[in-house]
């Protein structure tokens, strides 16, 4: 799984979002270090949708001020499972890094 896809799934795991909200959330989570442009975001969303990890939902508002034309994206059960798998893989890597004393602790 590509990092941007994992970031998207991480955002959607908290709740359904439209495109701009996903960009904002990724940026906020990384303290501004990570900015996803729209082209990269939607290519990733297309891949996730094709693998049925994300489901686009037409004309659904997540807040009263939302534009009706905005599409909202929701994580699927398969998406949640894939994100969990990826998180576990990363966690194992961190443990290995810690064992190699690349991080604090042993």
């Amino acid at each position: 799984m590509r990092p941007v896809e994992f970031q998207i799934l991480l955002t959607l795991a908290h709740g359904d979002c439209h495109g701009y909200a996903i960009i904002q959330d990724i940026q906020a989570r990384s303290n501004g270090a990570l900015t996803v442009e729209t082209g990269t975001l939607y290519r990733a969303l297309q891949r996730l949708a094709e693998e049925d990890l994300v489901r686009p939902q037409e004309g659904r508002r997540t807040s009263p001020v939302d534009d009706d034309r905005r599409r909202v994206y929701a994580i699927t059960t398969a998406g949640r499972r894939a994100a969990t798998e990826e998180a576990r893989r990363m966690s194992a890597l961190v443990e290995q890094a810690r064992a190699a004393r690349l991080l604090g602790g042993a």
Binding site: G39, Y42, Q46, D67
Partner: peptide, 20 residues
């Protein structure tokens, strides 16, 4: 095909970013 499926939503997201 990609434009037809994602283009309008991409434009909306871009406008939101501009406003931001």
């Amino acid at each position: 095909d990609f434009r037809a499926r994602w283009g309008p939503d991409m434009e909306l997201a871009f406008r939101d970013r501009l406003e931001g």
